[in-house]
Design a protein around this nucleic acid. Structure first.
Lengths: 150, 150
DNA sequence: TGTGAAATTGTCACCAC
DNA sequence: GTGGTGACAATTTCACA
């Protein structure tokens, strides 16, 4: 899985616009479009390039509330069990196990704060999580393309 | 900015694969490809669809460390100033102002934990941030496509 | 919204380095 | 191994119904 600067440039261009044409990329990196395609195909096989996705404005879709919810597990609860139960909740868009006080942090998105509160209650009611501490997102300060959704 | 179920289906399909062809989408939602294109064009004009991006495995690119860093501002520090100083740090891939104890949370990504520590020190040295509290990501438990990078 | 045609893009075999 | 060229297939795009 060698990675040269050409690959990094191509990935940066595709991160900026995932639907850029091979020809457009080729001109910017001074290659032919088949050469670019071969590199992109290789990066996908490697797993370095996982795929492509649409960048959607969730607020425009009616999901205006977002929060980071710290989760504290009950005794003896395994990581797999928490992961499985979080995956079952569509509002959980991302979750990590972390160092520090909390065991994990879930990033959740709901229509509004009322839904947010209901969601947090339901996470607690689940049984795997004994306590939560939430930080509601007021605004986005930084966002780099290829790093998230909206 | 009306949004019907057809639009939502199209956005879901493009979130799953941002390079899906109009014809592929058209078959799945029972429309013609020009009709799909017209809707996608409208969603882009609306701003509902912000664009497309590549989904990259940052660990494969040598950035294996990730953390959520809670930031506590000094007195009188404005949101704009924090946003500007965070934007200047490439390792900050996302940041939000939040409710709760901390003023903001930055999501950062570095090569390793040593770089992570250096970065956190530099955020404190900046002057706008008087204290930080970090939660280092151990593993990703949940990740929905269209919600992030790797 | 669909159809059909033209322009653009993706794809692959083949060759050179 | 990597890259380029040219030909063909697939897709995008748009005028018109």
């Amino acid at each position: 899985m060698r990675m040269d600067d050409m690959d990094r440039q191509i990935l940066a261009l595709l991160t900026d616009d995932g639907r850029r044409t091979y020809d457009d990329i080729a001109r910017r990196v001074s290659l032919s479009s088949p050469a670019v395609k071969r590199r992109v195909d290789r990066l996908r096989r490697d797993g370095t390039l996982r795929g492509f996705t649409a960048v959607v404005d969730h607020a425009a879709l009616g999901y205006g509330a977002e929060a980071l919810v710290e989760l504290f597990y009950g005794p003896g609860v395994t990581l797999d069990r928490v992961a499985a139960s979080l995956r079952a909740v569509p509002e959980v868009v991302e979750a990590w196990s972390v160092t520090g006080e909390a065991d994990a942090i879930a990033r959740v998105r709901t229509r509004d704060n009322a839904d947010l509160e209901r969601l947090i209650r339901s996470l607690q009611a689940d049984g795997t999580v004994v306590r939560t501490r939430s930080q509601v997102v007021l605004s986005r300060l930084v966002h780099r393309r290829g790093e998230d959704d909206a």
